[in-house]
């Protein structure tokens, strides 16, 4: 187990390193040069040169990369040329909102998904099952941005239940979380259903049934607990999807999170911010997946890694 852990941590490091190279390359392929944007229309040769030196853009790409990574390891992801804020400051400012949004979406998605999945599994091959699965697939297929617009129109504007936009406590995250959690709910419902059906087929459930265990007891005490093991992994895998979904959701609901930050940073060519954010988000996703993997082995004793 411990050697497995060491090996996993090692590959995780390699992946993060690879991601950093990739991000750095992508960023330096972005056309146009930040200098033009910073100095605007009144740049002189002299001021361009001066700024290049100040920002270290006169050095070769590999040198820039190594000095960037050296700083990154020490927790310095650079400073925005434009806003004057350090990237770490910006991330810390905004991460609570994205984290809460991701968490609430996950909670909403998991509860809805598991309930629907259980219903479908218990009522297997009935009309309820089919409707539940169609619903789950609709959740996966519907464009979030489109759902969001009509949720705002209905619940915020017409019915006046939730705030329309901006961040102002829990209530302002309800609609965004529903929007973002729909896809997750769909996937979890499907996973729960099939995983439950797998478990129900197994011997010990048959035994429990033969012993005369009640239906609900059977569902909740025996089947669901085991059926949820793969669902937990899925929840971990959904994290990346939620990060991407946050970009669109935060834009529509004007939430000041990481997703809306990356959109505005791209549109103002705020290179250090885009770079730092991509790196940070990717690292988060890798770490979350790693943790979920470890949890998975803890949760399911049948799984053993060498």
């Amino acid at each position: 187990m411990s050697s497995y852990l060491v090996k996993r941590i090692f590959t995780m490091m390699i992946t993060i390193l690879g991601v950093s190279v990739l991000v750095f390359m992508i960023i330096h392929l972005i056309p146009g040069n930040p200098i033009n944007h910073i100095l605007g229309d009144f740049a002189t040769e002299e001021s361009i040169r001066e700024l290049e030196i100040r920002l270290g853009l006169d050095r070769s790409i590999p040198v820039q990369y190594f000095s960037y990574m050296l700083n990154a390891i020490q927790g310095d992801l650079g400073t925005s040329y434009i806003t004057g804020y350090t990237v770490v400051e910006e991330i810390l400012n905004r991460i609570p909102i994205t984290a809460q949004l991701a968490l609430f979406s996950m909670v909403f998605g998991s509860i809805t998904g598991i309930v629907i999945g259980v219903i479908a599994a218990v009522k297997k091959n009935t009309i309820y099952d089919q409707l539940a699965m169609l619903l789950a697939l609709v959740g996966i297929s519907a464009p979030g941005f489109w759902i969001a617009l009509f949720l705002i129109l209905l619940f915020s504007y017409q019915l006046n239940i939730f705030p329309i936009s901006g961040y102002n406590g829990f209530y302002s995250l309800v609609l965004p979380s529903i929007t973002l959690g729909l896809g997750t709910a769909g996937s979890i419902a499907r996973m729960t259903r099939s995983s439950m059906l797998d478990v129900i087929k197994q011997d010990y459930i048959r035994t429990a049934k033969a012993k005369g265990a009640g239906v609900y007891r059977l569902i909740f005490r025996h089947s669901l607990q085991n059926a949820l093991i793969p669902v937990v992994t899925l929840i971990g895998m959904q994290f990346g999807y939620l990060m991407a979904g946050a970009v669109v959701t935060e834009t529509v609901f004007a939430l000041p999170g990481l997703g809306s930050l990356i959109v505005s940073a791209i549109s103002t060519r705020d290179i250090p911010t885009v770079q730092g954010l991509l790196l940070f988000m990717a690292a988060m996703i890798i770490i979350v997946n790693f943790v979920v993997d470890l949890l998975y082995t803890k949760l399911d004793p049948r799984i053993q890694y060498e």
């Binding site: 609430f104 996950m106 909670v107 998991s110 995250l173 607990q225 949820l228 937990v232 949760l299």
Partner: peptide, 19 residues
């Protein structure tokens, strides 16, 4: 086997606490 359930409940509690 109960752990998955415990874990899930903890996730829920965490969510509520954080918010």
């Amino acid at each position: 086997k109960r752990r998955s359930f415990v874990f899930f409940t903890m996730l829920l509690i965490l969510a509520l606490v954080l918010s």
